[in-house]
Amino acid sequence: MRAMNISAFDVIGPAMVGPSSSHTAGAVRLGLLAHHIARGIAPFARVRIELHGSFAATGKGHATDRGLVAGILGLLPDDERLKNSLQLARNRGIGIEFREVDLGTDAHPNSVRITFFFADGETLVIQGASIGGGNVQLCRIDGFETNLTGTLDSLVCWHMDRPGFLAHVTGLLACVEANIATILTARKMRGNDAFTIIKTDSPIPDDCLSVLLRIPFVRQSVRIPKIS
């Protein structure tokens, strides 16, 4: 067991466009993780962004709004187009709506809830927090507790809670020699909807993902690349 789970570059870095690491660069990273998940599901044309705590109180001066939108559009934290991200979203035909929200006392002060609306009427709800120095954590996806930080390549799966799911997936990853760092599985009710996040030390290849989607009780699976 390693004593500290932290990198030297979590302290010195990231290179970023300001003004705030937690409120701007962290916001870009939160948006970017959400972007990768949403884009892996379907194209989206409408997004609701709900700001909590300090994100709501001082977000505007810190360009939290522009940072989140930049990330949702797929921009990186050091992209100087961040300044004009709201216009960029309009140019791309993506409707963005901002609200304030109280996510409760358990939520980190720098929290956001992002809802993606897809053409087929489905939604994706992601809650995350910017925990300092530009580092982030997605703590909830569609109501499931998560721990996605973007520091490793990850695989996100929506599936049925059936015996053998993990055996299938880990077997598949073993075939492509993707070393698994951590696995987190959550379910709402026994035998019902479940959700798994697998973090790996190397990217998961394309063909691996398409095989994974053919496992009968896997409903959706998305790859999230590591964010530098």
């Binding site: 010195i12 990231p14 970023m16 466009v17 300001g18 690491s21 937690s22 100087e80």
Partner: peptide, 16 residues
Amino acid sequence: NAQFGKIVATPTAGSA
């Protein structure tokens, strides 16, 4: 930083 220029967070932007 206040003019949306590139900086390195050390450890944060507000203390960069």
